[in-house]
Amino acid sequence: MTSRESILAAVKANQPETVKLPDIDVFETKEKGSLEKFASVLQGVGGKVAYVSGYPEIARTILAQYGSDVRIVSPVKELKDLSDENLEDIASIHDLRNVEVAVLNAHFGVAENGAVWITENEMQHRVLPFVTQHLAVVINAAAIVPTMHHAYDLIGKSTYGFGTFIAGPSKTADIEQSLVIGAHGPRSMTVFIIGNDNQSGQGQV
């Protein structure tokens, strides 16, 4: 008997009487995702928020912040002017080791925890949002869901090879519970929010 067969047989012999799955749709309230809450929770976990009018303002803001001497990459079509590097052309993913800033589109944000959902399609290379020193993400002001239940409602319909929720810069508190930003991944995370009429044009990173 293989281990597979013996494990399955033991599980079958020992598993208890079946019980029904609970109804978890009750957690999906009718409330709308609050952009304000998303922004404040994200800032609470070390992320930065910038309200912008559109992609040109994002490009201007990033160049003003980081200058043009560092390696900035983005698979976002609208940000072609920001970087002339075509990410499809790199020979090895290890060539991404010295990326300073990466700008990616995200599908949506989650108000309750400040996370954004990004899949492989938006990353071009899976390692990009992790290996870059600074991460910038673009979302639409209307694309905020209240909770993770709503999030999986949206994700459920999509296909991806890899997808991740990212909430703020990489961090650790392993040394005496002192919070340090910039563990192995990005040292900062900025979320650019497009289409919030009240606050656009006040980009502040």
Partner: peptide, 13 residues
């Protein structure tokens, strides 16, 4: 409220 990264691995690169 959530870990910084919650990564979903579905297919190999």
């Amino acid at each position: 409220p959530i870990t910084t990264y919650s990564s979903h691995f579905k297919t190999p690169r």
